[in-house]
Computed example of a mutant assay.
Amino acid sequence: MLTEERLNPPVEAASDWTIPQHWERFTEEEHAVWDLLFERQRKMLHGRAVRAFEEGLDVLRLSHPGIPDLEELNERLHARTRWTVVSVPGLIPDDVFFAHLAKRQFPAGNFIRKRDQLDYLEEPDVFHDVFGHVPLLANPAVGDFMQRLGELGLESMRRGALHRLARLYWYTVEFGLAREDGELRIYGAGIVSSFGESHYSLESAQPSRHAFDIERVLRTRYRTDTFQAGYFVIDSFEALLDELLTHDFPALYAGLEGTEDLSVAG
């Protein structure tokens, strides 16, 4: 989830923090970095990511060389699930981020990492945001899940429970695993955009892997500075969407008042 302490958008941004992509301003080197990252991750993720991810790459034509032109990408994405991608300068406030999701708009950082930052970048760039998140937005269940997550995010802020909702976002959208055809598969954007964690999350004996349990997720801490100590595994995107549609989140928050936080490794 994106968090930024600044209260006001940069001068060049609109009140919702969006900016023009100015695709024509990306340099040859920046396009080359995208191509390098894309080809490396696409090959490595084959057979590791959920089918819906690879299908999204195909239907959205993300394999076209260079950083995607959002105008062209949005024509294809909106036709499938009514989602669009909007450019933002970088990290944005939580309320702005969730408001975009609630309107079926995914914010993407309008910059790309340097060649010497291929394996780690603290602030999400266009590769993380578009390659990592957008393919699954072509899936109807994921699209509905993300919109509902935006609505719940705004509600959690009003109720002082953002830390709970942030954990749900973290352990699904960013670092979620799924069971597909009896095998573990990746779907979280933080994993699919990371060469190292794509291997680690599935193959290492070090992290724990738990069946998805929404109360446990809401109680479980996470770290942002290293590979995850553990992951939660869903059965399907439809089942995940159902978790958001059927649970009374204010009641969940109230029920967890006073409970101790958990470590995902436990």
Rank of each mutant, 00 (worst) to 15 (best):
M1Q: 12
N8D: 12
N8I: 00
N8L: 12
D16G: 09
T18R: 10
I19T: 08
I19F: 02
E30N: 14
A32Y: 09
V33Q: 05
V33Y: 02
W34P: 10
D35E: 10
F38M: 08
E39A: 14
R42G: 00
K43R: 12
H46L: 13
G47P: 03
A49R: 10
A49W: 02
R51L: 08
G56I: 07
L57N: 02
D58S: 08
I67F: 09
P68C: 04
E71Q: 13
E72V: 15
L73G: 12
E75Q: 12
R80G: 06
T81P: 06
W83L: 06
V86M: 03
L91E: 01
I92K: 04
P93T: 01
D95P: 10
F98I: 04
L101I: 07
R104A: 06
P107T: 09
G109H: 02
Q117H: 10
Q117I: 09
D119T: 13
Y120A: 05
Y120N: 10
P124E: 06
D125L: 03
H128D: 02
H128C: 06
H128R: 02
G132T: 08
V134S: 05
V134K: 07
P140G: 01
A141Q: 11
G143Y: 14
G143E: 01
M146F: 01
Q147L: 01
R148M: 13
L149Y: 05
G150E: 07
S156F: 10
S156M: 08
R158W: 11
L165D: 05
A166T: 08
Y171M: 02
V173M: 03
G176K: 01
A178Q: 05
E180G: 06
E180R: 00
L184V: 05
Y187Q: 05
G196K: 13
G196W: 07
H199R: 11
S201A: 10
E203Y: 09
A205K: 08
A205D: 11
Q206G: 01
H210S: 01
F212Q: 04
R219G: 06
R221M: 13
Y222V: 03
T224V: 13
D225A: 10
Y231C: 00
F232Q: 12
D235N: 06
S236K: 04
F237R: 04
E238F: 00
E238T: 04
A239K: 03
L240Y: 10
L241I: 05
L241Y: 06
E243Y: 03
L244W: 09
L244K: 07
F249D: 15
A251P: 06
L252Y: 09
L252T: 07
G255M: 05
G255K: 07
E257S: 15
G258K: 09
G258V: 04
E260D: 15
A265D: 12
A265K: 13
G266C: 06
